[in-house]
Design a binder for these strands. Structure first.
Length: 279
DNA sequence: CGGCCAACCTGTGCGC
DNA sequence: TGCGCACAGGTTGGCC
């Protein structure tokens, strides 16, 4: 499911109810997700206060008062659902509800992930930057280190299709299949172009387009949070209008363009593009 | 190291 | 109605 904007939306949704609250329950209902769930999962969390809810790329970071950091990834199908005790008793855990939390503030938080590509592991706050999941990642689109000089440099030494390079979390952290398709469409760059053949001008445009796409998606997520805030429900999966993703066979939305959106498969993922607008 | 592919899982939707 | 297949928003490990 989630790329950086969706994870940021989840973070904003859970931060207000978790920060300052104490876990009175933390159960792992199976031994593993993509990787084993820590043996001491419950013991390490119960009775402790959450200091802050952060995010690094697509990873949620729950900072505990004692320096422990719970790293959560939603994989492809992960969802977090919050229930408030004022809405009645929380439901019995359903199928694929793998993690079950309760806070002293009367909040139940469930992590549901049918495909189990998600994960939960622990780290120490002081060594978080060196954590094997965190350390290898490139800059996020909204970070200072992400600029056209950096991107030009990265493209220059890679001949793989630009689509693959933009999906590489070591190059840019946070983009996934949808937003890569959207960014390439807006930039007018065909997804199979070798990265080292993308011009500096195109790279400069792409840099700011990637920021735009991510900023707009975060804003769209924020607007869904407003509706969400009142009621119990799922976080992170919001309907956003895409200009090219998922629109195979439909008319290109560029004014005056009469072409149909095409779909090809790259690196075992679907790429959607307009053959006229993305030469 | 760069690049490519298979693998990890389950659910859903579509064509026959 | 049932069956089989294609596909799904992510990441990694192994191989050349």
């Amino acid at each position: 499911m989630p790329e950086l904007p969706e994870v940021e939306t989840v973070r904003r949704g859970i931060a207000p109810v978790l920060e300052g609250a104490r876990f009175i329950r933390a159960d792992a209902r199976r031994p593993d997700l993509r990787v084993p769930i820590p043996e001491n999962f419950s013991k390490a969390l119960v009775g402790k206060r959450v200091r802050r809810v952060g995010r690094a790329s697509k990873y949620l970071l729950i900072y505990m008062e004692d320096g422990l950091v719970m790293i959560l990834h939603l994989g492809m199908s992960g969802k977090i659902t919050l229930y408030n005790e004022t809405g009645g008793p929380p439901p019995a855990p359903a199928k694929h509800d793998h993690l079950h939390f309760e806070t002293d503030g009367g909040i139940t938080m469930l992590f549901n992930d049918p495909r189990r590509f998600g994960l939960v592991v622990f780290s120490d706050e002081v060594t978080l930057d060196q954590h094997p999941l965190i350390a290898p990642m490139g800059p996020e689109p909204l970070a200072n280190g992400f600029n056209s000089v950096y991107l030009t440099e990265q493209f220059a030494r890679r001949k793989a299709p630009i689509k693959n390079i933009l999906l590489d979390q070591k190059v840019i952290a946070g983009l996934g299949n949808i937003y890569v398709c959207e960014a390439l469409y807006r930039a007018g760059v065909h997804p199979v172009r070798p990265a080292n053949q993308v011009t500096e001008k195109e790279t400069a445009a792409l840099t700011s387009i990637i920021r735009d796409v991510i900023n707009e998606a975060i804003a769209a997520g924020g607007s869904t949070l407003k509706d969400y805030a009142q009621v119990d429900g799922e976080l992170g999966y919001f309907q956003h209008r895409f200009r090219v993703y998922g629109r195979e066979g439909e008319l290109c939305l560029t004014k005056g363009c009469k072409s149909e959106i095409e779909r090809i498969v790259q690196a075992a993922r679907s790429s959607f593009f307009c053959p006229s607008c993305q030469p």
